[in-house]
């Protein structure tokens, strides 16, 4: 097997993994939508506890991370990878602040909305943490063509957040 073949196989493997991710989060999206249909008012009331500005900041961080990792693959410069790392950290920090503000004032974990909120954003946050670890490893060890695979992974996380943001923070 040549380098080109193995690189192509790795790309196809990553695409299959991303398709599986769509289905994983897809199940959560469907569950959320179905439960929301039956508890519309409770969901609307629970949503008021979230900070839309922090959700927007998370969106900005994910989009900026995607831009910088795409530029890192395009121009092979390490500073773009460091920028992606910073975006990931900003995303997690903003999510952490949102968690802290939700949990603090008389939080009732039995609320259905927050069950979905914590599972969906927590799972996404864990994926981002994994992405940060991969990008940091690539930044330290040198990356070559592997950056494209990391980029695909990061872009998929951004794509998922594009739907998580309006679903959790905005949809009334």
């Amino acid at each position: 097997m040549t380098d080109g073949d193995s690189s192509e196989a790795a790309r196809i493997g990553m695409w299959l993994f991303l398709a599986a991710e769509i289905m994983l989060f897809g199940g959560l999206f469907v569950g959320f939508a179905l439960i929301r249909m039956r508890h519309e008012e409770a969901f609307a009331a629970a949503r008021l506890h979230l900070h839309r500005s922090l959700g927007f900041l998370c969106s900005l961080a994910m989009l900026s991370g995607s831009l910088s990792i795409a530029m890192a693959a395009e121009r092979a410069k390490r500073r773009f990878l460091v920028a992606t790392l910073l975006c990931g950290v900003v995303f997690l920090a903003a999510l952490g602040f949102d968690y802290a503000s939700v949990v603090a004032p008389g939080f009732r974990p039995s609320q259905l909305f927050f069950g979905f909120y914590f599972v969906m954003t927590g799972l996404h946050g864990l994926h981002v943490l994994g992405g940060i670890a991969v990008v940091a490893w690539l930044a330290v060890r040198g990356y070559g063509r592997r950056i494209e695979l990391a980029g695909l992974y990061w872009h998929m996380l951004t794509l998922l957040w594009i739907f998580l943001f309006p679903l959790l923070y905005l949809a009334a």
């Binding site: 927007f56 900005l60 989009l63 951004t158 794509l159 739907f163 309006p166 905005l170 949809a171």
Partner: peptide
Amino acid sequence: AVGMMFTRGAASLGLAAIQAACFSLVFL
């Protein structure tokens, strides 16, 4: 994303769909 901040319900999800389409075509 800024536009989404000023919309609600189906409109914000519609903007998200447009955003996702643009993103998939160019970044992915």
